[in-house]
Each structure stands twice: as C-alpha cells, then as structure tokens.
C-alpha cells in the first residue's frame, strides 16, 4: 500500500465530518465575514457593500472601547481570583484532616450548578432589600445601610466577578488537586530534609508539577471569561449605565436589539479574533512550560 493511497483514504474517512463541520461552522462563518462588510439589517434587505465602514465606526466608538475594557477587566480579575483561590483551596484539601473527603465532594457543587441557577442565587444574595450580603455586612457592622450591589455602577462589575469566580474556582481547585497528587512523595520528603520551608517547597517542588495543568485551566478559563455572556445577561443585562457591558453583550445588543446585523457581525469577528490570539499565545506558553519540565 503506498503513501498516496493512505493519505487519500484518510481524507475520504474524514470527509463526512468535514462536510458537517463546513456546513455548521464554515458556512455561517463565511456568511458572517460577508455580512460584516455590509449594512444589512437583521430583517429585511440583504444590505449593501460598505467596505470597512462597520469596522471603522466600531474602533472609533466609545461603546466598543468601554466594552473591551470591561471584558478585559472581567476576564483578568475573575480568572486571577479563580486561580489563586483554586490553588489555595486545593492546597487546603490536600492536607490530611477529618472530613476532607466530604469537603472535596462539596467543592464541585458551585461548578456543577447551571450558570442560570448560580446567577439567580447571587442575585438573591445581592438583593438590595432582603439580600444575605447586606444582612451580613450590616449585622457585623461593616455597612450602615442596605445597598444595591448590582444597581450601582461602581460595584456591579465586582459583584459579577465574585459570582463568576465562585462558580468557576472549583474547576481550578480540582485540576490543582489532581496535580498535587501527582507530586512524588519522595521529592517532597527530600525538600523537607534539605531544609526547605513551606514557601520554598511550594516554589521548587509543588509549582513545577502544578504549572502545566494550571496553565491549561488558565487558558480554558480566560477564553471562557473573555466571551462571557450568560451570567451577565441574567444578573445585570450589561447595566447599570453599561458598567458591565462586555463585548458579547454588545454584540447581542448591536445585532438583535438594534437589529444591525452588519455591524454586529463585524463586532463578533473582532471578538473571535481576540480570542484566537489569546488561544495561540497560551498554547505556545503551554508548549514552552511543558517542554521545560519534562
């Protein structure tokens, strides 16, 4: 059997999948690209070709820049909180103590909940009239009067980040916990005998084993956080005063609320491009960190 036939056969076997992929992803993608150069409305005319007008208008619009900033803030801060909290919780649950297994099982709960449920729960917690957060803060004396956490442009984004981090830190914690169990016992023992303190042991013994899996978690979470839509849509719909309007929300408003399919498409493509860049950078980082270790 020659190499040519092997290659041909490989393509033939992949053909059905390729056709499906092209029709459900490829076609809409190319149509989105085409749309982004038109002034098409969601309903009605196909629109006329307008060149880069949509892109020019977007890049110069304050709404876009603001949304980009909000998205970046949301992604960076929530992923950072998730990673730090996740690793700390993993280190805690790695210790030997009574009830450890129960806590490990409970850990998965926030992550297992559907985003909608999580979002509604946090709306209850943040509720300005009977929310648990207000009650708690007032009772311990940190707050004088109940506040509207989601209604205040100064606190809404932070409140959202807390809710999102709460939902997603268990994923990081679980991945870290698995990585911790992969650290060979003798290496930890050697570091103890060598006189390394807890911090040095974390830095030189634990971290090398944690870095790879953590990087994967970081990639997944950053990309997900960058295209966040559901939790924000349920909790604030991008408000108040657009203080939580991320790029995905902006795409939705542009394409569906304002029915501007053309400029919505160009915005969607920009978000896609940004995520692709992120993914490529991260994959390169993962390659590098994996190669350095093993």
């Amino acid at each position: 059997m020659n190499a040519g036939w092997t290659a041909t056969r490989a393509w033939l076997l992949m053909l059905p999948l390729l056709i499906v992929m092209l029709s459900v992803i490829g076609w809409p993608f190319f149509d989105t690209v085409r749309l982004s150069f038109t002034d098409a409305r969601l309903v009605g005319t196909g629109g006329d070709f307008v060149g880069f007008a949509n892109y020019e208008r977007l890049f110069s619009s304050r709404a876009f820049r603001r949304a980009f900033l909000v998205t970046t803030q949301f992604a960076v801060v929530s992923v950072l909180v998730e990673v730090v909290l996740g690793v700390l919780v993993a280190l805690l649950l790695y210790q030997n103590f009574r009830g450890r297994n129960v806590l490990r099982a409970l850990l998965i709960l926030p992550w297992a909940l559907p985003t909608v449920v999580n979002a509604l729960l946090w709306r209850l917690i943040y509720n300005p009239e009977y929310g648990a957060l207000n009650a708690l803060l007032v009772q311990i004396g940190l707050l004088d009067a109940y506040r509207s956490w989601l209604g205040d442009p100064n606190s809404a984004l932070v409140a959202l980040i807390v809710a999102d981090a709460w939902k997603n830190f268990p994923l990081v914690a679980l991945i870290s916990l698995a990585a911790l169990h992969a650290v060979p016992h003798d290496i930890k023992a050697a570091a103890i005998v060598d006189g390394a303190g807890a911090l040095a042991r974390f830095r030189f013994v634990i971290l090398p084993y944690l870095a790879g899996p953590l990087m994967v978690a970081l990639v997944l979470r950053t990309i997900e956080a960058f295209k966040v839509f559901d939790i924000i849509w349920i909790m604030t719909r991008g408000g108040p005063a657009n203080s939580t309007r991320t790029l995905s929300i902006l795409v939705y408003q542009e394409a569906f609320s304002f029915q501007r399919a053309g400029s919505g498409a160009s915005l969607a493509l920009i978000v896609t491009l940004a995520i692709t860049v992120l993914a490529v950078v991260y994959v390169a980082l993962i390659r590098k960190s994996a190669g350095a270790q093993f």
């Binding site: 060979p184 003798d186 290496i187 023992a189 050697a190 570091a191 013994v205 090398p208």
Partner: peptide
C-alpha cells in the same frame, strides 16, 4: 532516596 527524588525543574 531510593527513587532519587531529584527536583525536576532545577
């Protein structure tokens, strides 16, 4: 140590 226990990234 029986298993060497070297620090892999140093």
């Amino acid at each position: 140590f029986q298993s060497y226990a070297l620090y892999p990234n140093l």
